[in-house]
Write a protein that binds this DNA or RNA. Structure first.
Length: 435
DNA sequence: TCTGGGGTCCTAGGACCC
DNA sequence: TCTGGGGTCCTAGGACCC
């Protein structure tokens, strides 16, 4: 068994040594994006230089920290905590906290700009999230004899054109490149296999990609505190205690990972969802139905814009006490009809709702397939073509006159937005935890 | 004045069939 | 009537990422 693992390891390392992959990560992305944007509009203060965070509106119950400045970080502010807590920490440290509201269209525009710049240097660019990209430079040694120098050039271009700084990592696979970019803020750092022992193994194990809170607890209970300790731990024991996650993090700790830098596109998508924290707690089915419909409007439009249909609808409810439950339903024939998806989601709601106040609702569709082929079953309703035509008509009106041009009349004076969520951008970056 | 939103994958248990 | 095991599909929930 051990023999096999070492053999495997050596083989994988040899394979990976021939590749050259960079990872770019925008420094405090949301804050940098908003700052660059406001400066371009004439603002005189740079949010990055003061005690500030990007965060949602507390009145509409979206009050958490999405990104923080260096000073805010030094006050102890962390991403994901409430603005209330963040403000308290900053006040205690003698600062007044500035809260900048997020603008997702700005984030998307900046992210697209970064991808455009990278495309000038390589034809293999993969957006990993709204602020991270992988670039494959394998086989381009003649074009870029000094790759580190090239990466500094790219950094400079991003700074000049987007107005933000980034950290860059370089290695022979995506995992190591990503770990490398974490090593030096606003710099270019390498982490090749022969540097793992020196640069990565001394780091705390929670710094490893895919080691979250739960995994950290288990690893700590086994006496593992650094990435090096994990790398040298017995694989069979890890597999037994942490199942597949154990094998994954052990491989990562040893720098083993060999996925390709692929352009993320819609065809690879497994599902899509839309969820919202409602401004008020919902205590009746009628209002729940409105929110579900507004969520499904976006999902339906996204499905149709990608000529896709779904075969499973799931509904997620978060109660005001933060309990979460979900129900899902698979059906015989796939659909992209907004009202059909919304009806199923509402049925699920009625089946599972226990009458307690609801804070958050989410709808997620999956088992996606190409909508050019539709399987009709005996039990399909007769109005299928009519419904498809209505959706088509509404889509084209919204495309021409804006998303607010057409809405269902039940939303009038309801206090619920007729379309909820979604960025309305066809090139929406796909975010995932999978390399 | 408490705690966002959008993804992917894994696991365990139950139903059902042979 | 009772018992067993294997395979597949479905479902709910959990873990991770940004």
């Amino acid at each position: 068994m051990i023999k096999f693992c070492i053999k495997d390891l050596v083989k994988l390392m040899k394979e990976s040594e021939t590749r050259l992959v960079a990872h770019l990560d925008i420094n405090s992305a949301y804050l940098s994006y908003m700052s660059a944007y406001h400066i371009s509009k004439g603002a005189t203060v740079d949010y990055r230089d003061i005690c500030s965070v990007v965060g949602g509106s507390e009145n509409s119950r979206h009050g958490i920290v999405l990104a923080k400045s260096k000073i805010a970080k030094n006050c102890g502010v962390s991403t994901g905590e409430t603005l209330y807590q963040a403000r308290k920490k900053c006040t205690a440290a003698g600062y007044e906290l500035l809260v900048v509201p997020p603008d997702y269209s700005v984030f998307i525009a900046c992210s697209n700009q970064m991808v455009e710049i990278l495309n000038r240097f390589s034809d293999r660019v993969a957006r990993f999230s709204i602020d991270e990209c992988f670039v494959d430079f394998t086989g381009m040694e003649n074009l870029y004899p000094d790759i580190v120098d090239t990466l500094y050039t790219i950094k400079e271009a991003i700074k000049n054109e987007v107005g933000v700084t980034c950290s860059v990592g370089l290695s022979s696979n995506k995992l190591l490149a990503k770990m490398a970019s974490d090593l030096k803020k606003d710099g270019v750092e390498t982490l090749f296999p022969n540097e793992i022992k020196r640069k990565m193994w001394p780091l705390p194990v929670q710094d490893l990609f895919m080691v979250g809170q739960q995994t950290l607890k288990k690893l700590n209970s086994m006496g593992i505190y650094t990435i090096g300790e994990l790398a040298r731990y017995d694989l069979d024991t890890l597999k037994y205690r942490l199942k597949s996650q154990g094998e994954l993090v052990w491989k990562y700790a040893n720098g083993i990972e060999n996925s390709q830098v692929k352009k993320s596109n819609f065809s690879g998508m497994k599902g899509m969802g839309n969820s919202t924290t409602i401004n008020f707690d919902i205590d009746n089915k009628e209002e729940a139905n409105l929110v579900i419909m507004s969520l499904c409007e976006t999902i339906g439009m996204r499905l149709r814009s990608h000529d896709s249909q779904c075969n499973l609808v799931s509904l997620y409810i978060r109660y005001s006490d933060f309990r979460g439950i979900s129900r899902q339903r698979k059906f015989k024939s796939s659909t992209d009809i907004t009202s059909t998806i919304a009806n199923i989601a509402f049925e699920l709601f009625c089946e599972v709702w226990d009458g307690m106040p609801v804070r958050h609702l989410g709808v997620y569709v999956s088992y996606l397939s190409d909508s050019s082929v539709t399987q009709i079953t005996l039990f399909d309703d007769k109005d299928i073509d009519k419904k498809k035509n209505i959706d088509k008509c509404v889509d084209s009106l919204r495309e021409r006159f804006g998303s607010k041009s057409v809405m269902k009349c039940c939303f009038l004076n309801s206090g619920v937005r007729p379309i909820s969520g979604g960025i309305g951008e066809s090139d929406y970056p796909i975010m995932t935890s999978i390399l």
